[in-house]
Nucleic acid binder design. Structure first.
Ligand SMILES: NC(=O)c1ccc[n+]([C@@H]2O[C@H](COP(=O)([O-])OP(=O)(O)OC[C@H]3O[C@@H](n4cnc5c(N)ncnc54)[C@H](O)[C@@H]3O)[C@@H](O)[C@H]2O)c1
Ligand SMILES: NC(=O)c1ccc[n+]([C@@H]2O[C@H](COP(=O)([O-])OP(=O)(O)OC[C@H]3O[C@@H](n4cnc5c(N)ncnc54)[C@H](O)[C@@H]3O)[C@@H](O)[C@H]2O)c1
Lengths: 215, 215
DNA sequence: ATATAATTGTGAAATCGGTCACGACTTATT
DNA sequence: AATAAGTCGTGACCGATTTCACAATTATAT
């Protein structure tokens, strides 16, 4: 679309900036410098200035950034004025936790429906989200194009195919499976066991002075 | 320690390789090529060969890699012979989901204890893990040096200070707060709302042909 | 035995991401 | 009005990571 010169690394930091600018605004702060923001989000201030500069000159030299302006800018940039609907597949331990969480409040993202194969769960409502039977996936998924996958790994490929067939274009995959999709589908993996293991590996094999905060 | 020439990007992929090599071994496969592995883990085959090469010549030209040998090598490299103990702080939606999950099975990581401030939860056992009162943190945390943070964001800084004082060196932080720690402490952030928002941003602003599977 | 196909390990190049450091500009102070 | 202090935006640099592409080696087929 429009902003495709934005580096991926920058794009991944935008929601973080947005959250903290929001906080500042709630605190009634009128201006903020890249240095202050840096302390809050733990990203180097030069990186922040560079990130912002991809969108043009958002600040004023010698002054910093106007909080309200910045907030408005990022709200537009992150499309926070329109709600994004999401479907969750797999209402188990992890899925249930997500259903209880309100992504609307700060992120304008709404888990609109959930699917499971367990008859005990189908028909219930968890955190205001209706749980449908997975057999009805094709019937109920309507216009939604982002899915959260919290099913057993063995089910991941089969369900993914059905999601893709229905026009889903983005998948947040919590299963340990690395799913196969056409190249026009975007998949982000959050692999909790890998994250834990990687953290442990770093602790054991890297000198303590060189540690960093990673995402 | 020993392996500190391994690039961070490589280190973060090691647990993933380990998991899939394990799968192959269970399937009775004797050899594997970087191309096959690439299809399974969705990482370019040249990247896999480069990653492996940091550890020496693990394969044979024209043949590929011996699965059993590779498995043994990564088990040693990832210290899978000794269990790593972890403490979980905050037995809410997310924390409870983790307590029900068995990280031991494939990752040799054990959530050994949990802490909460809610008297309803203190004293219970969830997924074989005892829940202690947060006031007893200093008393119970013993030798554990990795913590998972699943408490409200407002509590994050206070609890972090106590963890650091007790000698914790690695933190997996699920709260939206960016915590302040001495530079010798390693923090990995998993920020679910940011992940969702970033996925949505990519879908809206990047051409569909250019999508990738990210971690 | 020879030819063909497969596959590694790695220099070299390309890409990406992060940081330094400074000119230009704004604000505050005297 | 002049000076000092603060801060952005960015060119230049550096380091990390990824990818290309190929010589070397091994396995397989005939
Ligand atoms: N819970 C954790 O802490 C954790 C940690 C790491 C990875 N994971 C991964 O996340 C995923 C979910 O974990 P979990 O602990 O919530 O598992 P879970 O078993 O509690 O939940 C899985 C849910 O999916 C449902 N399901 C099964 N097959 C289905 C199908 N075909 N269609 C629709 N629903 C189906 C089940 O009924 C169940 O409710 C798993 O892949 C797991 O490996 C979880
Ligand atoms: N659940 C989700 O899907 C989700 C999504 C994104 C982010 N998060 C973040 O993850 C964190 C946990 O989320 P959750 O949904 O599990 O929250 P939750 O409110 O269900 O759980 C928090 C738990 O921490 C306990 N607690 C509060 N103060 C404490 C203290 N000082 N010491 C020890 N325990 C304390 C509470 O008693 C509660 O059990 C939050 O920071 C939340 O913002 C959660």
């Amino acid at each position: 679309m429009d902003h495709n010169k934005i580096p991926q690394a920058t794009a991944k930091r935008l929601p973080l900036y947005y959250r903290f600018i929001n906080n500042l605004n709630h605190q009634g702060k009128k201006r903020v410098s890249s240095k202050e923001l840096s302390d809050a989000v733990k990203v180097d201030s030069a990186t922040i200035r560079r990130d912002f500069s991809y969108f043009g000159a958002l600040g004023k030299k010698g002054y910093g950034y106007n909080v309200e302006y910045l907030l408005g800018f990022f709200r537009k940039t992150l499309d926070q004025d329109e709600t994004t609907d999401v479907a969750l597949i797999g209402v188990g331990n992890l899925g249930t936790a997500f259903l209880h969480y309100n992504f609307m409040k700060n992120n304008n993202i709404l888990i609109k429906m959930a699917f499971d194969s367990d008859p005990e769960k189908v028909g219930t409502t968890i955190g205001d989200v209706p749980v449908y039977h997975i057999a009805d996936l094709e019937k109920k998924l309507d216009g939604v194009n982002v899915a959260i996958l919290t099913i057993p790994a063995s089910e991941a490929d089969g369900i993914t195919d059905r999601l893709v067939a229905e026009g889903i274009t983005g998948i947040l995959n919590f299963t340990p499976a690395r799913i196969t999709v056409p190249e026009y589908i975007r998949v982000h993996h959050i692999d909790l066991a890998v994250e834990l293991q990687a953290l442990v590996y770093f602790l054991k094999h890297y000198p303590l002075e060189e540690t960093k905060q990673l995402d």
